[in-house]
Simulated assay, not measured.
Amino acid sequence: MNAPAPLEIIAMAFSLTTLRVDGSPTPALCVDDRYWALADIAPEVLQPEPSRGLMNVFGHWEHSEPLLVAAAERLASAPPLPAPHSLEDVLTPLQYPRKLVLTGANYYDHMRGDAGHSDWDKESKAPLFFLKPPTTTLVGPGRTVRYPEQTAKLDYEIELALVIGRKARHLTLADAMDHVAGYTVAVDLSARDWQRDPRHLVKFDLFGGKVFDDSCPLGPGIVPARYVDHDDLRLRFWLNGELKQDAHTRDMIWSIPEQLVAITEHLTLEPGDIVSTGTPAGVGLATGQWMCPGDLMEAEITGLGRLTVEITK
């Protein structure tokens, strides 16, 4: 982690994920690549609705977080789960949030380089937001992204995503971060030929370009905000082993508090909702290199792990 913190705090850092165990989604806590089922080490956090998994945990985050921190301190004497057999056994962490809000055009290098706006400035602009349907766009690691046959220009965007831990409406810059429970890695996939379709009434289509099935890989786990310095995280994305994106969250145009204030001016964010905070430069839009079936995507953010996803037919 980049954030300064006492060594004992860093040592017990953990993430929350959902594994497939005996065919069933199983919420788990992960430390140093070892997993423990929450039902075994902190069953209280799954109440009152264990079937909701981590959605129940984030739905009562102020109650859940101290119990999870205490459980992480006791893990030395608790037997872990067997390691996942394959990437597909690590599911998207949340099954499923009510809302998935994404921010577009939120890194200076992406706007001035990839998008070609050399004179772009923040003062005369407003942030761009859009929604993806969580139940059909969120996928976890592995061979989970089916190539969208309607596009010939499939593109990638690594993003830092956050999970809401408290109901939020009309936030201020002073209180916005109090509502963030944790962070994870997201990849916002785009169909650029639809996104910039000249047939569209305004020549720009965030429906056809963004909301197709499997268009938001997420994971591998969610790291509580207490362990994350969100202002100084390194984002890196590889396509078939070639580094394509390499940037830091400090280069965002609108900070995370500014994004949350702008979003909650219009809608209520609920516990478990995900906000994805935009991508830096290096996407295929700038190079004309589009993805195809068989391509391997690897997205990594400081302290949050690596999300590895393959595109299938």
Rank of each mutant, 00 (worst) to 15 (best):
Y227Q: 07
E157S: 03
L239W: 14
A28I: 08
T26M: 04
A13K: 09
E242P: 08
L138N: 04
L7C: 09
P4R: 08
D246Q: 00
A11G: 15
V45N: 06
A191Q: 11
S51G: 04
P220F: 02
K244W: 01
A152W: 06
P224S: 10
S64E: 02
K210F: 04
W120D: 06
P271M: 05
I253K: 07
R306K: 10
G288Y: 02
T144Y: 14
A181Y: 05
W120K: 06
Y156V: 07
R169C: 05
L68N: 04
L29M: 15
D251C: 04
D175I: 00
M1C: 06
R234V: 04
T92G: 14
L154C: 02
F237E: 05
L68I: 12
R226K: 13
A115S: 13
T279K: 07
L100N: 09
V90E: 15
G272P: 13
G284Y: 12
I164P: 10
L260Y: 00
D229K: 01
P93Y: 12
V202E: 12
E65M: 06
D121Y: 07
S24R: 15
H200N: 03
V163E: 08
G23W: 14
Q289E: 10
A225Y: 13
L162I: 09
D273H: 02
M1S: 10
D251R: 01
V261I: 01
T144I: 13
A299P: 09
L154Y: 01
S64V: 04
H63R: 08
F130N: 05
P93Q: 00
L201N: 14
M177L: 15
F58G: 04
T249E: 01
L239P: 12
I256V: 10
L131P: 13
W61A: 00
A168V: 07
G221D: 07
T137N: 11
L304F: 00
L100Q: 12
L267P: 15
R234C: 00
F130A: 14
R250W: 03
P220H: 09
L235E: 02
A78W: 12
P271V: 14
L29N: 05
V283Q: 11
L171T: 02
Q195R: 09
N56C: 13
A71P: 15
P66H: 04
G209S: 07
L307V: 05
R146M: 13
P198V: 07
S190P: 08
F204C: 11
A286Q: 12
D32K: 09
S255C: 02
R166A: 06
R166K: 09
K122I: 13
V185T: 10
V57F: 08
L91P: 11
M252N: 07
A186V: 11
G305N: 12
G241S: 11
F204D: 06
Y227H: 13
D273L: 05
P134Y: 03
A42K: 03
Y35H: 14
L68D: 08
S276K: 03
A225V: 06
E73H: 06
